[in-house]
Design a protein around this nucleic acid. Structure first.
Lengths: 362, 362
DNA sequence: GCCGGTGGCGAAACCGTATCCCATGGTTAC
DNA sequence: GTAACCATGGGATACGGTTTCGCCACCGGC
């Protein structure tokens, strides 16, 4: 009675239960299920019947332990509710599913502590790769931290992928999938400048965020190219959210800052800015033009529809997964060849209705 | 040389490597790491040093097999980019993290095939619970399908949780976390009716979607309560997306349908409707009023800000996780007591600026 | 009629960790 | 002074699979 386990016990059925009930060996059941070894039709039929009767599924943990197992990719993200990140996640998840891979998600909430804990957790899980999403706060410690992650994962047979942030310095075993952030900002700013705008309020994001820096740099280069002096006083840093956009514009208006256009760091910031302008009785784009960045669905749902920079988020996700899958399937032969690989995708301006020539001053 | 494994092999370090290098037994290393057994300081020090040197982490699969292991909850979702679902996911993930649980996500893309595959995959993973998110298409087969999932998971020691859809019929081992969908719709429709609107265009969503049905029912009840005849001709079904909202309004306008307000099934649909009205030269809310449902961030970012029904998505996620955690920790004693548990959270109308009394007809 | 294949299947050795059981040495109690 | 005990540490086993190895029966060829 207390042999090892009652066959009809509470927990899930094991391969042994199936074997016993079908009157075959455990090995045979395993072979029927994995299908990588010749088995007679008779045996297959018998086993499959029992499998259906018992509603048996193999234990993934045991399978992983024994060598097999489905590869898993972990997606680490600041905030799961961000639209841009959701699209990257969609790309990763979709591509993973396509190959039968599994995906885990974890949110870091911008907490380095938690990020470390998650990376370790994923290492325990033996994931094929850890995909870190979104811009980084480039403090001094950052490079060291990431390098440590990369080496740690690499030593464990896993791999670090950075999506949406610049590549690491030095010889670090990590893959980077990035987009041409600075060129996008350059093009976007040029668009405003060529429409005649000269007094432009710039809301690039947090000063330490790599993404914000690139966008600011791109804008600055555009100003230079147009021979327009870049006024640091027209730059307002802050988080990538609606409230920041709103407050930055509201404050600027109250302080009497003179501007005819707003160059927002993201579409969401642009939405906030637009609302603040409207609240102050200003029309978009007749009185003030606005542009965003990201081209999330919101951009085309605003009124007026937002001129912005398209970033191929979903594709970045797909590319990221493909990179790790290739590397894994490439085998030992070319395993090392792609270290520090850096993929860059293009961006382009999407012209909609939020930009007009500056209003004539009276 | 080819003993069992070179200690400094490529793959990750095992507990045996640590034990050997520290000159202690495997059992001792395990005890130091799990900390549930007395060990001398000297031994702890020795082991921890080697753990750091080797950057060792325990193998989660082996750990799960051996009985320990961190519980995992799986989130299954139609489309990861939907804002409402993202918030539920955030709630689940946040609550999971709080207890040291892990979360997996999978997207079904509205494909029953894929849903089945995912449920089985999660069963293999031995997840503590599978959380199914979002409204369901209530075809005949649906109830049977879900009941099968529920029993299957239950038999494997897991549990099915339905979030945002009505409870299953009969005695099925599944937990439901729902919100008062119909009352929300009732209140929202009442809001329009009490403002004086009588000709209301209704865009409830897909006819077979449980969510859409409830919302439509709530609206119909409100019409009855106000003694206003409900005209089925004013109802346009369609997907919960921006395009549908846009097209439904555009078509209605072209066909000369007479309406002074739009009752949209979701905020995103409302956004599309708003854009279409504006494109036709109509003002919101002066000419036509609009209300939405969900209260996602977009609602307050539109111009005018959208009056809508608040749904506590994130809390639903938290509640869902708490339910499964309680059930699991409740142990055998009360394990069965909560079968078919059904939790309902409240909704309420959020009044903003998209509703005005109907314009006087001339 | 004997022998070498070959196709199918079972037995057993792992995979990496947690834990039960037992051995040991030093203490405390009588 | 001896028995009983506590604090630690090691050895063995179980968890549920996969895979290697070897056995057996059956086959055709000589």
């Amino acid at each position: 009675m207390s042999q090892r386990k009652a066959p009809s016990d509470a927990g899930r059925a094991t391969i042994r239960d199936v074997a016993e009930r079908a009157g075959v060996s455990v090995a045979s059941v395993s072979r029927v299920l994995s299908g990588n070894y010749p088995v007679s039709d008779e045996l297959r039929r018998r086993v499959m019947k029992v499998v259906r009767d018992l509603d048996y599924v193999t234990n993934a943990h045991a399978r992983s332990l024994a060598g097999g197992g489905t590869p898993t990719v972990a997606i680490l993200i600041n905030n799961i509710t961000g639209a841009a990140f959701a699209h990257v996640a969609k790309g990763v998840e979709g591509a993973a599913t396509l190959r039968g891979w599994l995906s885990l998600v974890g949110t870091t909430g911008d907490d380095p502590e938690r990020e470390l804990a998650l990376v370790n957790l994923m290492r325990q899980q033996g994931v094929a790769a850890v995909v870190l999403l979104g811009g980084a706060y480039d403090y001094d410690e950052y490079q060291l931290r990431m390098a440590r992650f990369a080496r740690s994962l690499d030593a464990a047979g896993s791999h670090l992928v950075l999506v949406g942030r610049p590549p690491l310095e030095g010889d670090v075993p990590a893959t980077t999938v990035d987009y041409d952030n600075e060129s996008g900002a350059y093009a976007m700013a040029s668009h405003l400048l060529s429409a005649g705008h000269r007094k432009i309020l710039v809301l690039p994001g947090h000063a330490e965020l790599t993404t914000a820096r690139s966008r600011l740099n791109g804008a600055r280069r555009a100003f230079e190219a147009y021979g327009v002096p870049f006024d640091p006083g027209m730059v307002r840093h802050g988080p990538y959210d609606y409230e920041h956009g709103y407050e930055a514009v509201e404050t600027s208006l109250r302080e009497g800052v003179d501007f005819t256009a707003v160059l927002a760091g993201t579409d969401v910031v642009a939405a906030g800015a637009m609302q603040a302008l409207r609240a102050a009785g200003l029309r978009v784009p007749e009185d003030v033009s606005i542009v965003g960045y990201d081209d999330i669905p919101l951009a085309s749902q605003l009124t007026p529809q937002l001129t912005t920079v398209h970033v191929p988020y979903e594709e970045m996700g797909r590319v990221a997964l493909r990179a790790v899958a290739d590397r894994r399937e490439g085998g030992p032969g070319r395993r090392r060849s792609a270290d520090g690989e850096h993929l860059v995708l293009g961006t382009h301006v999407v012209v909609r209705n939020s930009v007009a020539p500056p209003a004539r001053r009276d």
